[in-house]
Nucleic acid binder design. Structure first.
Lengths: 359, 359
DNA sequence: TGGGGGGTTGAATCCCCCG
DNA sequence: CCGGGGGATTCAACCCCCC
């Protein structure tokens, strides 16, 4: 690895910049390429307000042939810089994902899963002409069929409260305080991804210290999640404004502590809303402290939703039970977080998550 | 349409059999193509050269050529037999859906949605090396970009408790009594789809009496759902055993009653009533005053059904839009008349007129 | 200060008949 | 084939304001 590229954002066209990176030097590529949307005229909501469309120049690649060529170019470079056991993630919608997926296979990548990001709060279809476009698709693929890419199975199972993580992930879109704004108060980037999505991607398929390359860095969500989780990032971005926003963003990120990044080896416990969801969504951060009802015992949160208290580690339920020398414990009511109003049970946050999930 | 093909299962290779069907004769194609190449019969390139028989060739990088060729062949036939406003559904997994989707776009189909069938009870990943493969992907596409395929928006909204149907559908896999068994008690088909899936597909994108072609008929789930819903089917299947099971299955199916097939209708499908009709019938008189919802703006009705508000005159829609400085306006819901009970939208009177037209 | 109501917004291939 | 015009069309989350 070119040491000077680590934890940096490189300015320029992604294909050209990637050519300057050495072979077999990164552990993971995460790519959010232009979707090449082909929108018609203006679109108005039923209340007559206008939808702020993604009409940026960078998304207009041209016809299928142009888009395929562009995809081949960046993907071959991505494959070259990957280590033999490396892997790639690509995200897209029905506009581009079939082309991207097909070229990925043709380029020699080996698809491991396709993952559905199921949006809990998508934009509706205002004209009643189609199904609500409520998801995006990610592809996770190894550099080669024989590669042995990282997969933290136990961590994913722990994050999902003891059952295998499925190929469909329900997560909200990026909005509210997480959504970066420019000086004018408008969104800094039209397609900013939620950190919760990258949290799950990086936690599942990288290890602390790994190098993650994002050739379409934008405002740096991949870098933010990587830095938080103790992974290294290399970003490539050609737009000076996005780059500026991303640099400021990354300067503010505090990495989680070492033990918080250490993930479970053998998980247990079951509940409908996994505690890991709170971590993923940033409601609880890795390294945060949890308190027993009277505040005498404490535990610290790890990135996969397990917690650690002295020698004891495991789920919120397990650790709670051990501390009380009890056969069982409802961690949701036992553990509390400190708020301005004093201690509050984490169950309050579970209720918030429930409200956002439709089952 | 060749009348003898309607509600029949045709035995043979799908490409060859489709060639015997006339152009522009079916309303919908539903295709569940094989994920692996086990072609049985000979496969010929467009120049009539023979393709070497292949068995599952996923192992070889670049071994997708035969699958792509096969996909091109059946898809071009499917497109040919579709009516101009026809549409296609294809279902697949990450093994084949990117290739199928890409070829579908290259063949001139216009993707309308990709739909995720989210399995409520998927098979777990036993080795713990990947995410549980808990979904399959469907693509819904129009024959052409300019086509106007059927979409029963209101019916889908009703099916989903009054909110728009999303692009992710949670349905259980086909099991239990629905799963067809052979004489040996084993499952008759390895990938039988649930009827609930086809129910939603056909209810959303066909009308009663439409003709649905399934070139990979298998044990006939498409035909079963079609017959139940009062749609016609044409099945193509080369395996004599599947064909036998499918025929027995279809013979048992009872179509739903006529009124049960009648689904929630979109207001767009209703007869148009000009505002002038209300004036003609004396329900509104020339000179009457119309009020906006809050009563702040008024307009007066003229004898020809146009209205006038200060300098502005024109249709109820045009004047309403101008007053609100909006790109458009539904005059029927915007304008109100004064009644003893307060303001009432003029849409109430339109409903009265509609009621008198229904005999 | 807490809850309720109104306004805003999000990767969107977003109407269709008739002259 | 194009243009005009009737008239159909939205869900969840987050913000701010106000009582």
């Amino acid at each position: 690895m070119v040491k000077s590229s680590i934890d940096q954002i490189l300015e320029g066209e992604c294909v050209e910049v990637m050519k300057s990176l050495p072979d077999a030097s990164v552990d993971l590529v995460f790519a959010d390429p232009p979707y090449n949307l082909q929108l018609g005229g203006d679109l108005h909501r039923p209340d007559n307000s206008k939808v702020d469309a993604v009409d940026n120049d960078w998304d207009q690649i041209g016809g299928f042939d142009d888009y395929d060529l562009f995809t081949w170019q960046w993907m071959e470079q991505a494959r070259r810089v990957l280590k033999p056991n490396g892997a790639i993630w690509v995200i897209g919608s029905y506009h581009n994902i079939f082309r991207v997926g097909g070229i990925l296979q043709d380029a020699g990548f080996w698809v491991l899963n396709d993952i559905i990001w199921r949006k809990t709060n998508p934009m509706p279809n205002f004209k009643g002409t189609r199904f609500t476009n409520a998801h995006e698709t990610l592809i996770w693929a190894a550099k080669t069929k024989d590669g042995r890419p990282t997969f933290n199975y136990a961590a994913m199972k722990a994050l999902n409260d003891g059952v295998q993580m499925r190929s469909d992930w329900s997560l909200p879109i990026c909005s509210g305080g997480e959504r970066l704004k420019g000086d004018d108060g408008k969104k800094a980037h039209p397609t900013q991804k939620p950190e919760s999505l990258l949290h799950r991607v990086l936690l599942s398929t990288t290890n602390p210290g790994d190098v993650v390359l994002d050739p379409f860095f934008g405002t740096g969500t991949t870098g933010a999640a990587a830095k938080r989780l103790g992974r290294h990032y290399i970003g490539i971005e050609r737009d000076a404004e996005y780059l500026k926003v991303a640099r400021a963003r990354l300067a503010e990120i505090q990495p989680a502590s070492r033990d918080a990044m250490c993930v479970t080896q053998s998980p247990r416990a079951q509940t409908r809303i996994p505690f890991g969801t709170l971590v993923e969504r940033g409601m609880v951060k890795p390294g945060d402290t949890l308190y027993c009802p009277k505040g005498r015992h404490t535990a610290r949160v790890r990135a996969d939703g397990s917690i650690i208290a002295g020698e004891r580690s495991g789920s919120i339920h397990q650790v709670g039970a051990q501390i009380q020398s009890a056969p069982s414990c409802n961690g949701w009511t036992y553990w509390h977080i400190r708020t301005k109003q004093g201690l509050a049970p984490i169950d309050v946050m579970r209720a918030e998550v429930r409200a956002t999930l439709e089952n």
